[in-house]
Design a protein around this nucleic acid. Structure first.
Length: 904
RNA sequence: GGGCCGUUAGCUCAGCGGUGGAGCGUCCGCCUUACACGCGGAAGGCCGCAGGUUCGAAUCCUGCACGGCCCACCA
């Protein structure tokens, strides 16, 4: 068997992807009653384009959990899919059309949707291909799409149930309107940005042209729709004006001064212009004072007919013109720069226009209550826990959900109007508030209101918010509302892995819907991760030009490397500052693993004669210190990693495995194994081989969820030596825990060896002893155990520190002229180096060590000699401190001795 | 205005009550037959600031400053 010197990911990845697929590895059949289940549904990526690093993070995290649980013995099921993505996807298509100088209206609804479906088909292919390439153990036979036929049935069923319960209603309400997208948005789809604007102070004279009040506004164009000016009832400045009429500038309309608590006396002039049709706060003032509401900005963002001579202007043009006209009429009294937060569309970032229009709503209060109870009762948990509070707060203050969108791409609202009894022609659809509708999947045969059988039915033109179908996802992917076997077997799911930015948009709504329709939370834990940002912490965006394509990274460093670096940084809930260097680091680690296996295989017989198993009661060869140490460390690692994974602390688990494999296994164990492997003692060799096979294959298993490809590749080579037959690591599962291998004594002894080695290595490096030179050493001092250990394991120290002969001198003050000195664990290693080293350097080095020892002594003395410490600290704490103090003193005095005598 | 998170080595981040850690970068030395995507060594920290609790605080508490998110009807 021979492996290349450097790992080449591409062919390995391709080979295993196809092997997994051929074996149907990710589509295990549900086995009734066979052990715990672990079910995950993918957060379906929008079909807006290719996947980005955030998707890579999200899906790798899920894959790690799924693979881990599968190897732990759970029945797992991970469902893939994509989301039609409503406005976002429609915008992508509209951009494409724009490049062809077309609008969606040029195509018409049917043609447009056809193009959307074509695009979606391609996009799904891309996304699923990328997920496969990422190595995701998704059951591709279950692929779902939020707008396919089955999901359509779920959506319509949910709508019907909510309708029948009176939880869905249509009403004329003030909503967030995106002028650019031409649709209403829900409250949480509005983002607030600090933007620089201006604050205009406008004088509103009294109707008789005497005095008047000054108001401040950031949106002067809304003046056209003003129907009052409001002041605080307690405001002495304006008390005499309450009830009087003002003359609205430019239009001349008379409007009243009203008193309302909501007005802040401190802010601006203390008087507010009230535009009920175009501001949510003003809308409420209008309700309280029965003010008329005049719509002056229409759905397309232009000034409506009521805007007089401004009608037809865009809102931007109107603002400019109105400011000019106010200036001309000397009513504009002040104009200042003003930074304030502006609501913008989460999909296109253009400013939101609050306006009144007929929309569909879901009444949320009753749905939120069970979700809150699930959280408080523990049937649903959020990790990390600090997200529970914002989640709870949001649910507690929940408002009704505007679910209608005036776009074409989405689930059409399943409501029909009879043209024979609904007068749609005289009431343009979007202006009507009280149409009689029939909720139905298909066009009804007869009108229940007028009994007409003419079939003059028209479906509501609106579509549902894309998040409506998303909220049903954990149910709909298994066929709900039908009682399918899959639904029985896999609902509710186990964990949901997603980013914190969609906790309200998605997580909360899934909880509410799941509880409403099934009485059970759709998943018992939400695992929340952060956002992938660039190196300097900025969000990745096309406009900043800092987006990184995961495919490019996978191509350059390998998929395992990309996955591992994402996982190493994926601390729950924390953002990742991503840099390519960390992927290079992971690539190096992957290569390290490759070479470790190469080393092991080089030292195993060409054809596996027998299995090197430690499970046999009678080991084939005697184990020695290094073996017992690495086994102990390996067991400790297994336990720690299992605990971490159970708590979803994936990053911590990854870090631990990294440290174990590189620092302990490679840098220490493998180096020591070389002693026996290069010798002639077959029994000793077999002992080493057993350990190498056992620890390496076990570590590969632990790593498999993180880096599925290289581990599969190497395990395939190693498994005959481990006596295992499974074709894939997922099928092989983890080895049983073996706590009997924990060995504190071996760990302690090995750490002494490491310390001694370290001090001699440091001496060599600092004194520039030629690395190839095998130097002689004289060992003196030390307590009996350490001394015995050093004598027993001289071979370790010789190999690790590249020593020649080591002489154990019984004489405490053994004189070795012209020696350098290494101190460790109470032992002194004198290294005669006349002619090799510069003794001035050695003196300087020792003086520095002495200074360090001295400061150590002082630090520990501050504790160990402190009567308060001795009085209050726990006994074992005191004991430890005393021991440390003794050791520090001992070291210091030895250094002093050395400096005064040996060096002379 | 409220809430959450962060502030530790040049950079990215662990540590969360007992003599300050990792990776990358830097410096010195090594092609030591698994790996130069490597090995050994080293330099580099008033652990944001100020109080408090404690025998003892990077770690717990309280304020403050700075940075970042989220929420809220500031015209």
């Amino acid at each position: 068997m021979s492996l290349d010197k450097a790992y080449a990911p591409k062919p390995v990845e391709e080979r295993w992807i196809s092997a997994w697929k051929t074996a149907g590895l990710f589509s295990p059949k549900p086995q009734p009653g066979a052990g715990p289940k672990f079910v995950v549904v993918i957060p379906p990526p929008n079909v807006t384009g290719a996947l980005h690093l955030g998707h890579a993070l999200n899906n790798t995290l899920q894959d790690v959990l799924v693979r881990w649980r599968r190897m732990s013995g759970d029945q797992t099921c991970w469902v893939p899919g994509t989301d039609h993505g409503g406005i976002a996807t429609q915008n992508v298509m509209e951009k494409q059309l724009k490049a062809e100088n077309l609008s969606r209206h040029d195509l018409g609804r049917d043609k447009f949707l056809e193009r959307m479906r074509d695009w979606t088909r391609e996009c799904k292919k891309t996304i699923l291909g990328q997920l496969e390439k990422l190595g995701c153990a998704l059951d591709f036979s279950r692929e779902a799409f939020t707008m396919d036929e089955a999901r359509g049935r779920s959506v319509r069923a949910a709508f019907k149930v909510l309708w029948d319960k009176g939880l869905i209603y249509r009403g004329l309400r003030m909503v967030n309107w995106c002028v650019r997208c031409g649709t209403a948005l829900s409250d949480i789809e509005v983002e607030y940005e600090e933007r620089k604007g201006r604050l205009w102070h406008i004088h509103y004279p009294l109707a008789d042209n005497s005095e008047g009040v000054m108001v401040a506004t950031t949106r002067p164009e809304t003046l056209l729709g003003d129907t009052a000016v409001a002041v605080n009832p307690k405001d002495a400045r304006y008390a005499h004006l309450i009830g009087k009429k003002l003359r609205l500038p430019l239009l001349g309309r008379e409007i009243p001064v009203v008193a309302d608590e909501v007005v802040d006396m401190e802010f601006g002039t203390g008087a507010v212009k009230v535009t009920p049709a175009h501001d949510p706060a003003d809308f409420e003032i209008g309700e309280r004072h029965s003010l008329p509401s005049i719509t002056v900005i229409s759905l397309d963002g232009h000034i409506a007919a009521e805007g007089g001579l401004y009608a037809g202007l865009s809102r931007e043009q109107a603002r400019q013109k109105i400011v000019e006209d106010l200036k001309a009429s000397a009513l504009l009294r002040k104009e200042e720069d003003y930074r304030h937060s502006v609501g913008v569309c989460y999909r296109c970032a253009s400013p939101i226009e609050p306006l009144v229009s007929p929309q569909w709503f879901v009444s949320m209060k009753d749905l939120a209550r069970p979700a809150l109870e699930a959280l408080d009762g523990g049937s649903f948990a959020i990790r990390p826990e600090n997200w529970a509070k914002p989640y709870r707060d949001w649910l507690s203050g929940i408002k009704d959900w505007c679910v209608s969108r005036q776009i074409w791409w989405g689930h059409r609202i399943p409501v029909w109007y009879c043209l024979d009894c609904n007068d749609l022609s005289s009431r343009p659809f979007h202006q009507a508030g009280d149409l009689k509708g029939v909720v139905s999947d298909e066009k009804p045969a007869a009108c229940p209101y007028c009994r007409s059988q003419e079939g003059n039915f028209m479906q509501d033109p609106d579509v549902l918010d894309t998040w409506f179908s998303s909220s049903l996802w954990p149910m709909s992917v298994f066929g709900w509302p039908e009682k399918t076997r899959d639904f029985e077997a896999y609902y509710p799911t186990s964990v949901l892995v997603t980013g914190y930015e969609i906790i309200y948009l998605w997580v909360a709504r899934m909880q509410m819907m799941g509880l409403e329709f099934t009485g059970r939370p759709p998943f018992s834990t939400a695992v929340i991760h952060g956002i992938v940002r660039d190196k300097s912490g900025r969000k990745m965006s096309k406009s900043l030009g800092n987006v990184v394509d995961p495919l490019v990274l996978m191509d350059k460093f390998g998929t395992d490397a990309l996955r591992f670096s994402l996982m190493r940084d994926a601390r729950l809930g924390k953002d990742i500052h991503f840099s390519e260097e960390t992927v290079a680091g992971s690539r190096n680690f992957v290569n390290k693993i490759w070479n470790t296996a190469r080393f092991a295989l080089m030292n195993l017989p060409e054809t596996p004669g027998r299995a090197y198993s430690l499970d046999e009661s009678d080991p084939q060869a005697p184990l020695e210190l290094a073996d017992r140490w690495i086994l102990s460390r390996y067991e400790a690692l297994s336990e720690e990693v299992a605990a971490r994974m159970g708590a979803f602390e994936v990053a911590e688990a990854a870090e631990s495995i990294y440290g174990f494999l590189w620092d302990e296994f490679c840098d220490w164990y493998v180096e020591l194994a070389k002693i026996r492997l290069s010798g002639a003692d077959e029994k000793a060799k077999d002992a080493c081989r057993s350990i190498l096979v056992h620890v390496l294959s076990g570590t590969l298993k632990m790593l498999h969820p993180f880096m599925p490809f290289i581990t599969e590749e190497l395990y395939a080579q190693l498994k005959p030596y481990a006596g295992e037959r499974a074709d894939f690591l997922l099928a092989a599962g983890f080895s049983k825990a073996a706590p009997r291998w924990r060995d504190a004594a071996a760990e302690e002894r090995m750490s002494a060896v490491m310390e001694i080695t370290g001090s001699i290595r440091a001496l060599r490096a600092q004194l520039n002893v030629p690395p190839g030179l095998k130097i002689r050493a004289v060992a003196i001092g030390g307590n009996p155990e350490t001394r015995a250990l050093a004598q027993e394991r001289t071979d370790y120290i010789q190999v690790l520190a590249r020593l020649g002969e080591v002489e154990f001198s019984p004489v405490q003050e053994s004189r070795q002229p012209q020696s350098a000195t290494a101190l460790a664990r109470g032992m002194t290693f004198l290294i005669p180096l006349a002619g090799v080293i510069d003794f001035a350097k050695e003196r300087a080095r020792l003086e520095k060590e002495l200074a360090k020892a001295d400061s150590d002594v002082k630090k520990i003395a501050a504790k160990a000699e402190n009567p308060d410490f001795l009085k209050h600290a726990r006994a074992e704490e005191v004991e430890t401190a005393r021991a440390q103090y003794r050791a520090a003193l001992e070291r210091k005095s030895r250094l002093e001795e050395t400096l005064s005598s040996v060096l002379n």
